[in-house]
Design a protein around this nucleic acid. Sequence first.
DNA 1: CGATGTGAATGAATTCACAGCA
DNA 2: TGCTGTGAATTCATTCACATCG
Lengths: 212, 212
Amino acid sequence: MKSEHIPKATIARLATYIQVLSEFKREGTDVVSSERLAEACSVNSSQIRKDLAYFGEFGVRGVGYYVQDLITSIKRSLGIDRAWNCALVGVGNLGRALLRHREFSRKGFIIRGAFDCDPYKIGEVVEGMEIVCSRQLPAKVKELGLDIGVITTPPERAQRAANYLIGAGIKGIINFAPARIAVPKHIHLEYVDFFHYFYAAAFHIRFDESRD
Amino acid sequence: MKSEHIPKATIARLATYIQVLSEFKREGTDVVSSERLAEACSVNSSQIRKDLAYFGEFGVRGVGYYVQDLITSIKRSLGIDRAWNCALVGVGNLGRALLRHREFSRKGFIIRGAFDCDPYKIGEVVEGMEIVCSRQLPAKVKELGLDIGVITTPPERAQRAANYLIGAGIKGIINFAPARIAVPKHIHLEYVDFFHYFYAAAFHIRFDESRD
DNA sequence: CGATGTGAATGAATTCACAGCA
DNA sequence: TGCTGTGAATTCATTCACATCG
């Protein structure tokens, strides 16, 4: 199959598959069928087979998938069989929490630079990293080979942070600030807003209640 | 129109609409067309009209939408025209960051209880809130009228946290822990994993690079 | 007139059902 | 035999196009 266009939802599910497969691996399970994996991920089994088919043939007919091999294959498919160097812009509450979050480097996203334009913060050391003025982004992106910019500024400064990152030659931006930003279309942009999940929960809970 | 079933994607977009409309409001814009709103949200204008039509008729033909009225209508549609009381379970790095995050109460999600089963943490005060043993959840859920449970434990303790919350009579769960959990189907469950966004960025960046 | 609200048309994603292979 | 891989069928979401109404 090996298609050109891959649904956005497929990418999201592949991340879940890795999570669940890692769990299987820890439990000592070597082989898993799409049926069993599907159940653990709460999806349809042919959904899994189709998602994987976009990238290649990873299973063995009549047997299933070898857990470790499948993890490796999915990681390669997603492009996380390597490290990605990240710049974090905006060292407030959320920024600090991300800097402290051990999971980032464990998953291959290494935060190599922390930037802020607040003179009171510049020079401060967080998690062994010195906070640097955002104006130094162009130099640092080149020096450290930074790939992805992570915006954790207040909303009103998100666009400026994006501009710095884009000017510095970053390839992708993950925006945690609650603001829409404009970027040229060769820059990949992702919005992260976990309030979406709270809204969805609130909506469904109230909806369920109103049906009684 | 006022339909029964509402697409998941619609809920997610409504959250974006609120964000952008609030921005318009701050700028002093009173009336907005679906065309203009669509541009700011990077979606199609009929998408917006259809999303809104699921909940009612909020616009004025030939004019557009009154910004403040539309914010109010969407909030009511989503069920966030009221406060939601939340219990946070697992006071680690991420849990603390959420407790400190001012935006929660501002958006109507009030964290009223912080729970952990680590005896070293119990009794500690974070952001004016005393950390309480998770075993006290049933009492506290009733006492404080808690609606939504927020799980920020390590993955291996997520299911136990969920069990406590479910037993205590919570209505919905938002799981930040990188683990799948099982809940009865009357409990609304949302998974939050911001690594999904990093994976998606990595995938697309590498994909774009390989096309040159 | 001008922008909404909405059926109808299109497009995308998911699921079914089974051929094909270890 | 049993489970993968995949075209076909179905379901779901988005966009179009225009009737409708302030």
